[in-house]
Design a protein around this nucleic acid. Structure first.
Length: 633
RNA sequence: GGUCCCGUAGCUCAGCUGGAUAGAGCAACUGCCUUCUAAGCAGUAGGUCUUUGGUUCGAAUCCAAACGGGAUCACCA
C-alpha cells in the first residue's frame, strides 16, 4: 500500500507539487493510537513545495489519494500529518495473503550467498560460563536469522587447543593430581567430574602453585638472597625497587606488578610449562598423548554443554592445526610492500594513515602472533569453501580493535571479501555484584546456570502448568524448553553491543517481557485451535473489523521487514522485541473478544485464522532465537 | 593520553535512517477467573531522555564539546 502511494505521488508529482519530487521525502509511519487512521503520511516536506499551510497540503494530498485508491476509506489532516484509514476489507485481504505465504517473513532457502558464522570459540582450560552463553546464543541466533533470510550458513568455532596455557593444565595434572589405589591420576571416569571441569580444576591448580612460587621468590629477593638467579634479572629487580622510592601508591602498585611478572618468569613451574610446549611443538609422543587425552576430556564436556544449550556447529577449526597459517601470506605481503621489516627482523604493518597504529604481524624470531594466525585462518576458510561470501565473528567487544585491524589488513592484502567480514561484537555480562572474575570465584558456570533455570521452570510449571496427561519424559522436556527458552530470551532481548546486567532472579522470571510469556501465548493459541476441532480457513471477513484485530494484522504485516532488519544489523534483539510486541497485542485481543464462543461462524473463523497466524509467526520468531515453542504448558 | 562503545522512570531495557503528548517489564498500589490456558488482561503512580551549545518547521534520535561508566592501545591469546 505504501509503495502504491509512493508510486502515485511520484507519478503525479508535477501536478500536485509543481515539481518532480525526490522519493525519500515521502515518509510513512503508523498512526498514533489516539488518532483515527491506519497509517500516516508526513506532509511537512510537501507543504513547503506547495507553498501552503501543512493542513491544507495534507487535505489536498488526501483528496487526491482517496480519489485514486479504492481501499482508502477516509482521511484526516492534523497539522502536518495525513492520517489515512483503510477499508476493513483491505485488512481481511491482507490477512488472507499473509496466511497464503508459507513461512511468511522468511526468504526462500539458499537464495542468498553463503556466510560463515563463528561463535563460541572456547579455551580448553576453562569450563563455559555465562559470558559464553551470551556468545553462543547470539552466534547461533544470528546464524539462524541469516538462514531465515535465505543465506546458506556454515556455523563454526575455533578451538583454542594449544599454547602455553594448555601446557599449564597438563603440567598441573601430572604434578598435583592425587593417585588412587589403582595407581591412576584423576580422570573424568574415576572422579565423575565433567571433563572440562576436571581440566579447568588443574588450570586453577597451576595458577595457585604458580603464584605461591612467585611470591616466595619475591620474598627471597626482598631478603636480599639472590642465589641461583641470573645477574640480569637481579639488576632489573633492583632497578624496580629503587624506582619505588618517592612514588605514590598507584605507581608503586604498578611497579610491584612488574616485579611479580619478573618473578613469575623465574618460577620453575613456568619453565617446565615452556619446556612442555617446546616438546609439544616437536611432537613428543608422550606429551602428545597427554595432550590428546586431556583435550578429549574437555571436548566431551563441552559437547554435553552445547547439547544442553541447543547449539551446534557444521565445522570445527582447531588452533593446533591452523596456528602456522598466515606466515607465508605475511612474507608475501612483505615482498609486495604491504608490510615492512624492522631492524630486529620483526614484521609490521603501518596503519597510521587509517587512523590506527602500527601492528606487529611476525615476531623477530619469525614466529606468528595472534594476528598472523587470524589472517591465515580467514584466507584458509575461503579456500575451504569456494562459495563463501562473508564471515561473521562472534567475539566480545574487547577485541573490537583487533578485528578492525584484521579486516583492514585483509583488505590491503587485496581480498575483496574483507568487506563482507563482520565482527559481531557484544558487551560484557555483569552481575549485580559487579564484574565476573574468575579469581574471585564470581564466575557463573554455564552448566550450573542451565540446571538452575530448568529446575526453577519445573517448580513453576508444576505449580501452574497444564500438565495433565503428560508423561514424565514429556514433562522434563517441557521444563527444559521453558527454562532454557527463558534464559535465551533474557540474554538475547538486549541489544548485543550493549553491556548487560544479568540478574539471576529476573532470568528465571515467567511474567512480563520474558521467554515463557511468549511461549505461553503460543501454547494458549494451540489449545484454542485444538478445541476448535477444525475450522473453516475460508473466512470471508465480512464484518466490521475491531481495532484489536487490525492492530495485530498491522504487526504481522511488518514481520518480513523485522526479519530482514535483524539480519542486516545482526540483532536477535529486534526479533525478540517484535515477538513481545506481537504477543502483547494478541493477549489484549484475546482478553477483549470472544473467539470460540463467538456465535457468528464467519467471525469465529476469522479470529481463529488470525490466532493461528499469530502462533505461526511466534514460532517463526522463536525459532531463529533458538527457543522452542511448546504446544502445551 | 589516543581510539572505540555506552549514558532514557527506583531497577532492567525498548525507541535512535529526525516527526504528533517518550514506551515496556520488574518493584508498589487498584480491579478482572461458576466463559476459549490468569505464565494473562485493564488501570494508578513513576521522566530536566547526563549537561551545554549547534543544525532544523520539528531533536531522545544528527553534529560539537563537557561530565560519568566501560573497553582497547603487548614480540599475550
Amino acid at each position: 500500500m505504501e509503495n502504491k502511494i509512493k508510486g502515485l505521488l511520484l507519478e503525479h508529482s508535477e501536478n500536485l507539487f509543481g515539481t518532480q519530487i525526490n522519493e525519500n521525502i515521502i515518509q510513512f509511519q503508523l498512526t498514533r493510537k489516539d488518532v483515527e487512521g491506519d497509517f500516516t503520511l508526513v506532509v511537512f516536506p510537501f507543504s513547503k513545495l506547495m507553498k501552503c499551510a501543512p493542513t491544507d497540503a495534507a487535505n489536498k494530498i488526501g483528496a487526491f489519494l482517496q480519489n485514486q485508491i479504492e481501499e482508502i476509506e477516509k482521511f484526516e489532516a492534523i497539522n502536518g500529518f495525513l492520517n489515512l484509514s483503510l477499508k476493513d476489507s483491505f485488512w481481511f485481504e491482507t490477512l488472507k495473503s499473509i496466511r497464503q505465504t508459507p513461512n511468511y517473513g522468511y526468504a526462500p532457502e539458499n537464495s542468498k550467498p553463503t556466510i560463515m558464522v563463528e561463535y563460541s570459540s572456547p579455551n580448553t582450560n576453562k569450563p563455559l560460563h555465562l559470558g559464553h552463553l551470551r556468545n553462543n546464543f547470539l552466534g547461533y541466533s544470528v546464524a539462524e536469522i541469516l538462514k531465515a533470510n535465505g543465506h546458506k550458513v556454515i556455523k563454526t568455532q575455533v578451538i583454542n587447543d594449544r599454547g602455553i596455557h594448555i601446557c599449564k593444565s597438563m603440567l598441573a595434572w601430572e604434578k598435583f593430581s592425587p593417585i588412587n589405589d589403582k595407581g591412576e591420576r584423576e580422570t573424568p571416569s574415576n572422579t565423575g567430574l565433567k571433563g572440562d571441569k576436571l581440566v579447568g580444576k588443574y588450570y586453577v591448580e597451576f595458577d595457585k602453585h604458580f603464584n605461591a612460587e612467585a611470591k616466595s621468590i619475591i620474598e627471597q629477593w626482598n631478603s636480599k638472597n639472590f642465589d641461583g638467579f641470573p645477574k640480569q634479572i637481579i639488576e632489573e629487580f633492583l632497578k624496580f625497587e629503587s624506582a619505588k622510592i618517592g612514588k605514590d601508591e598507584k605507581a608503586i602498585q604498578a611497579i610491584e606488578d612488574k616485579i611479580k611478572e619478573l618473578a613469575k618468569n623465574q618460577t620453575s613451574l613456568l619453565k617446565e610449562a615452556k619446556e612442555m610446549l617446546i616438546k609439544w611443538e616437536a611432537r613428543d609422543p608422550q606429551i602428545y598423548l597427554l595432550w590428546t587425552t586431556m583435550n578429549n576430556w574437555v571436548y566431551e564436556g563441552f559437547e554435553s554443554t552445547y547439547k544442553k544449550m541447543g547449539v551446534d556447529f557444521d565445522n570445527l577449526y582447531y588452533e593446533s592445526e591452523t596456528f602456522l597459517l598466515g606466515k607465508d601470506i605475511v612474507l608475501k605481503g612483505l615482498k609486495d610492500g604491504i608490510f615492512y621489516k624492522k631492524d630486529d627482523g620483526s614484521v609490521w604493518i603501518d596503519l597510521t594513515a587509517d587512523g590506527l597504529d602500527e601492528k606487529l604481524v611476525l615476531r623477530s624470531d619469525g614466529t606468528a602472533v595472534y594476528m598472523t594466525q587470524d589472517i591465515g585462518t580467514a584466507i584458509d576458510r575461503f579456500n575451504d569453501y569456494p562459495d563463501l561470501n562473508g564471515m561473521v565473528y562472534t567475539v566480545g567487544n574487547e577485541q573490537d580493535y583487533h578485528f578492525k585491524v584484521l579486516f583492514l589488513i585483509l583488505k590491503k592484502l587485496g581480498y575483496k571479501w574483507a568487506d563482507n567480514c563482520f565482527h559481531l561484537s557484544y558487551g560484557m555480562v555483569d552481575l549485580p555484584s559487579g564484574k565476573m572474575k574468575s579469581r574471585e570465584g564470581t564466575v557463573v558456570d554455564a552448566d550450573d546456570l542451565i540446571d538452575e533455570v530448568i529446575e526453577k521452570a519445573a517448580e513453576m510449571t508444576n505449580e501452574r502448568g497444564h500438565l495433565e496427561g503428560m508423561s514424565e519424559d514429556a514433562k522434563n522436556e517441557l521444563f527444559y524448553q521453558i527454562g532454557l527458552g527463558g534464559l535465551k530470551y533474557y540474554l538475547l532481548k538486549v541489544d548485543p553491543k550493549k553491556r548487560m546486567m544479568f540478574n539471576p532472579e529476573e532470568s528465571v522470571d515467567l511474567t512480563g517481557n520474558t521467554g515463557p510469556f511468549i511461549q505461553y501465548a503460543f501454547a494458549r493459541i494451540n489449545s484454542l485451535i485444538k478445541k476448535a476441532n477444525g475450522f473453516s480457513r475460508n473466512f470471508s471477513g465480512n464484518y466490521s473489523i475491531s481495532n484489536e484485530e487490525k492492530e495485530i494484522i498491522k504487526i504481522l504485516q511488518n514481520f518480513p521487514s523485522v526479519i530482514n532488519e535483524a539480519a542486516s544489523s545482526y540483532s536477535p534483539a529486534l526479533i525478540a522485541n517484535y515477538a513481545y510486541e506481537l504477543v502483547k497485542s494478541y493477549n489484549h485481543f484475546y482478553q477483549s473478544v470472544k473467539i470460540l464462543t463467538e456465535e457468528n461462524e464467519d467471525i469465529k473463523n476469522t479470529r481463529l485464522a488470525l490466532s493461528e497466524q499469530v502462533a505461526n509467526t511466534i514460532h517463526l520468531c522463536l525459532k531463529p532465537l533458538g527457543i522452542e515453542s511448546p504446544e502445551k504448558m
